[in-house]
Every structure is written in C-alpha cells, then in structure tokens.
Simulated scan of single mutants.
Amino acid sequence: MKEVYAPFIPGTYNENNLDELSVLLEKGKKYAIDNLLWSDTGYFPSVSFSIAHTGDGIALKYFVKEQHTSATYKTVNDPVYKDSCVEFFISFGDGQYYNLEFNALGTALVGFGEDRHGRTPVPDDRVSSIKALSNINWAENTDGFNTWDLTLLVPFDVFIYHDIKTLNGTTSQANFFKCGDDLPQPHFISWSNIDSPVPDFHLSQFFGTIKFI
C-alpha cells in the first residue's frame, strides 16, 4: 500500500498569509499522481502534490502541467470535475470517506459517504471555509502546456461527521487524483492505482495511507 507522510507546520494561516503556507508546501516532499487510468490516447498531464497538517486543518499543494486547462465553475459545490480538476479523498477509518474536488481556480465540491452512490454534500458554508490560492501560467499557444499550482487549507470543520481537533500522530486512508471530464482530452489519473475495468475514483479499497507526523 502506498504511503505519504504529512508533516506538521506550526502557525496560523488564513487568506491573508496563505502565500506563506504555499512556500512551505513548495519546499516539502512531492508525490507524483502518475497512474493513468482508462485511457489509450497517450495524453498524460504531469501532476504532483505535497501535503502537511496545521493546528486546525490539512494543507495541500498541487502542481499541474497540461495542454488543456479549463476553469469555468466558480460556485461552491459546482461540478468542478468537468473542469481541470484535482481531487483528494480521505477516510478516517470508519468505512466512509470525504471527496474533496477542486478546479484550477480553487472552486470546491465536497461530499461524504461510503461509495459513489448517494453521497451527501457537505454544506456550502463549510465548503466555503476552505482557503485556496491559485496560480495559472498559460501557454503562449494552443500547442504548448499550461502550468498551474493550487494551494489549499482545509479546516477540520469541513469534516462535519468527525470531531477532529488534531491529526498529529494519526493515520488515515486516502487517494489523490487529476481529471477533467469535459476537457478536449478527458483523463483520469490517480496516486494509488485503481484496479477497475470502468472509470471510478470512488473505490476506497484502493486508497493508500497518510501518516500525519
């Protein structure tokens, strides 16, 4: 089973100093999202992430290089998976998990449940508390590659079905993804490989492990 290690970053972060957190994540260990699934086109965006935790949330930074980038959805819990989208699914050990999905602008969609069917949306006000810092560099022509990064701070309050005060010293199950359902070249890429004949990120038996240290 794949593992990532999420170190503790001291300090308090919000929209006013998220750039400082972004720099710290930039310096951290990067993990590749490099399992190209359910595709034979050869199109393979380059994606990696770094992860940490703070006193009140999970910090993530995604790094993406791709030819086609779309960022149209701007309202909380919109279908951002149709845009250029990075995703983070996490379970705290009870067989259910949260799906957190973000387009290149940082617009977020969050749900909760035990599989892909009948997921319960996390209320908009909780999802709106996620802090995001987006940086998109557009290619000079359509044949070039866009690069973008996205820094995220997910407060523990977003995980409304769990009373999380700290993650220090704990272990969770998770997977990380890149997709874009409505892009000119749709794709599905995962960190921990998924053995399924049909596209489905919602298979928690293939989650890897996060150790919060």
Rank of each mutant, 00 (worst) to 15 (best):
T142Y: 01
S128M: 13
G93N: 10
T107C: 13
L109A: 12
T171D: 11
S134R: 01
A104E: 12
V127T: 13
D78N: 11
V127N: 07
G106M: 13
D125Q: 12
Y81R: 12
F92E: 05
N99V: 01
G169S: 12
T151K: 04
I130R: 01
I136N: 09
G118L: 07
K74N: 10
Y81D: 13
H117R: 04
G95D: 07
T107K: 02
G111W: 00
N141C: 00
D94C: 05
L167R: 05
P79I: 06
A139T: 02
N135I: 03
N77K: 07
T171K: 14
V154T: 12
D149F: 06
G95F: 10
D143L: 09
S172I: 11
A104G: 10
L167N: 05
E114H: 04
S128K: 15
S172A: 15
V127E: 08
G169A: 14
F145Q: 10
S91H: 03
P121T: 05
L150P: 04
R126T: 01
F112C: 00
A104F: 11
Y73V: 01
L105E: 13
C85W: 05
I136C: 04
I130S: 01
D115I: 10
W148R: 09
G95K: 10
Y81A: 14
D115G: 14
S128W: 07
V158M: 12
I136G: 01
F145P: 00
I164S: 11
G169L: 14
V154C: 07
A132F: 06
V80F: 05
Y97V: 05
S84I: 09
H162L: 04
Y97Q: 07
N141Q: 00
T107M: 08
D149C: 06
L153Y: 06
F159I: 05
S128D: 15
Y81W: 15
D157A: 15
F88I: 08
A71Q: 05
P155E: 03
N135S: 10
N103R: 05
P79D: 11
A139L: 03
K82Q: 12
D124F: 07
R116H: 14
G93W: 09
D163H: 07
A104M: 13
